[in-house]
Amino acid sequence: MNAFRLAGDMTHLLSVVVLLLKIHTIKSCAGISLKTQELYALVFAARYLDLFIHFISLYNTVMKLVFLASSFSIVWYMRRHKIVRRTYDKDHDTFRHHFLVLPCLALALLINERFTFREVMWAFSIYLEAVAILPQLVLLQRTRNIDNLTGQYVFFLGAYRVLYILNWIYRYFTEPHFVHWISWVAGIVQTLLYADFFYYYIMSWKNNVKLELPA
């Protein structure tokens, strides 16, 4: 494993830790989109179908279990926990996330590496992950006071995507057979969605003012 991939996985993990910290210790999910969290739970469930079939490494298995458990527990907290769910900004989290699922499934049926159940689900999870951040970005735009943990959560998620692209470039030159066009194209689209957020995040950090996205 190269340094970019490891750093990418670590920032991904860090984003989950930041979010769980906010939910578990501060008992708040203000500014967090339940729609995005539900999509991530679906993304991991669809992608990690091979969890008990193909063993890659202990690292791989443990990380998959961590992402599955954390994504489902975040959804549980936001829906069922009696204190946390009251902080959920339902009125502003109105993105119709169901409309993202069907086109992604259709695209996965059309464009996949092999027409088998697991490969179609893998492609579906890649496409869905690329757009899963949209409800969160829309909610951020509508939130007047974005708290630091929410900003950091989205920043780490975006950093993870950037590092994965660097990882693919590295692997492309060092591993002759490393070709996954589907994840590359979807990954670049996903990273571009963060560009606007990154711009405002870095500006607010540089000027030492509170993060606020223009409506």
Partner: peptide, 10 residues
């Protein structure tokens, strides 16, 4: 032949 790499990423 173009081999597809194993899906070892998360």
């Amino acid at each position: 032949e173009c081999l597809i790499a194993p899906k070892d990423e998360l």
